[in-house]
């Protein structure tokens, strides 16, 4: 099984695990971490494709994803902290005031 399919499969499964985590976990920080994991899963696919294509575009894309992930983590954690300040909780089910 030394083909790209292995890597894509791994990437997909990791992505799916992350997605499941986002759906079932209530702690916002864990949700956030699951999102990071999904980003990583996609990164893996990028790197595998880069290897497959024999050029570096995929790796450059991964680089940019990392940059965005860094910015996202800064903002996301700041949001979580400010939510915690007003709700004294980081559970997503508690931050449910924006509804009909």
């Amino acid at each position: 099984m030394s083909s790209i399919v292995t890597y894509i499969g791994l990437s997909l499964v990791l992505f799916a695990i992350g997605a499941v985590g986002v759906c079932i976990r209530r702690n916002a920080i864990v949700v956030f971490m699951c999102i990071e994991m999904m980003l990583n899963a996609v990164n893996l696919a990028f790197v595998a494709f880069s290897k497959l294509q024999g050029n570096l575009d995929g790796q450059v894309a991964v680089f940019f994803v990392m940059v965005i992930a860094a910015a996202e983590s800064a903002i996301g954690l700041a949001v979580i902290i400010s939510v915690f300040r007003s709700l004294v909780s980081v559970e997503t089910s508690d931050a449910a005031q924006l509804k009909w």
Binding site: I24, V31, A96, L98
Partner: peptide
């Protein structure tokens, strides 16, 4: 349709996926 907006992030994420 407003019944769908529960305010629960997880619901939205599920729908999105």
């Amino acid at each position: 349709t407003c019944r769908m907006t529960t305010g629960q992030v997880t619901t939205y994420v599920l729908l999105m996926f």
